[in-house]
């Protein structure tokens, strides 16, 4: 009999926990087992999945991004103001913010700064820009954006299709392509990559630019769903995105990430809240229960880790 492959097990944990959660939700609240139900439960998970992917790019190069929540908030504010009123200015601002992200990557690499400090500082800058743009909550999402996000796909909700496409595209780009291998290796073994003649600077800038791009997408989807913005709208995404990557099987170091796992992790985090409210747990306990479920999933992970070590 073949032994369980630890690698397979590691990849299976995020999928299994999501499946378990879904089954529990379907049993408790059968109404969710419909197009309408899945769409409602998952449409706010989609921007979290994109923000998680942005975080994954940063984690791949051994850095940590504490500014993604503030960045997504700022993008949401740009989308609800400039992008709606003067589209050209809005598009220019979004491109400029991606460029700023890339420049951050260069700064962190060239000056050899700790990414946590730089991004923590930047989180205040992004939040400041968001407040300047939208001092009091309001604005309106452009109609075309709302139309895209609220588009009703036949048979399968858009949020599921988009999550699947997101996971698969990044999986093939980062895990299967030649370029992806180099990008990941720049986090796992930078010396070897440098010796092989690759520019670490270029690689880092690429990853930060990718993170910025996915952050922009996350903000656009978010504002399309909520239809208007608030400077504090996505501050929670910083921690959610980190938790999503880790739940999905990623590690803090060594370019060890899993894009499909990260998408599953983000969906799991979003659905935990749904399950708890369907269980009608009293408000005082809801807060603690959410944390408890995360700890359970992470405990499963560390079990798998130990299993892996023993297999080696």
């Amino acid at each position: 009999m073949a032994r369980l492959d630890p690698k397979l097990l590691r990849a299976a944990v995020p999928a299994l926990s999501l499946a378990l959660l879904l089954v529990a939700i379907f049993i408790i609240q059968p109404r969710t087992m419909s197009y309408f139900g899945l769409n409602l439960m998952l449409n706010l998970a989609l921007p979290i999945a994109f923000a998680t992917m942005a975080q994954l790019f940063i984690l791949t190069v051994n850095d940590l991004d504490l500014s993604i929540g503030g960045f997504v908030s700022m993008v949401a504010c740009i989308a609800a103001t400039w992008l709606n009123e003067t589209p050209l200015l809005g598009i220019a601002a979004l491109i400029a913010s991606i460029a700023a992200y890339a420049a951050l990557g260069a700064l962190i690499h060239l000056r050899n700064l700790p990414s946590i400090v730089v991004t923590l500082g930047m989180s205040f800058v992004w939040l400041g820009c968001a407040v300047l743009l939208l001092p009091s909550p309001g604005g309106a999402a452009p109609d075309w954006l709302t139309a895209i996000v609220k588009f009703k796909m036949p048979f399968v909700p858009l949020a599921i299709v988009a999550s699947a496409v997101l996971g698969l595209v990044v999986h093939f780009g980062l895990m299967r392509s030649a370029g992806g291998v180099v990008l990941r290796a720049s986090g796992g073994n930078p010396q070897a990559v440098a010796k092989a003649g690759w520019s670490l600077l270029k690689l880092k800038v690429t990853m930060y630019a990718l993170a910025g791009t996915f952050g922009v997408l996350s903000g656009l989807i978010l504002v399309g769903t909520t239809t208007s913005a608030d400077a504090n709208i996505a501050l929670r995404y910083t921690l959610l995105s980190i938790a999503g990557v880790i739940l999905g099987g990623g590690e803090f170091t060594g370019g060890r990430v899993s894009p499909i796992g990260a998408v599953l992790g983000a969906l799991t985090l979003a659905l935990v809240g749904s399950l708890l409210s369907f269980l009608r747990i009293s408000p005082e306990w809801q807060i603690g229960a959410q944390g408890l479920m995360l700890i359970v999933v992470l405990a499963l992970r560390s079990l798998v880790n130990r299993f892996e070590e023993r297999a080696q």
Binding site: M41, N43, S274
Partner: peptide
């Protein structure tokens, strides 16, 4: 706000 929006949807 996003968490509360999700709560409303639930």
């Amino acid at each position: 706000a996003t968490e509360q929006a999700a709560q409303l949807q639930n």
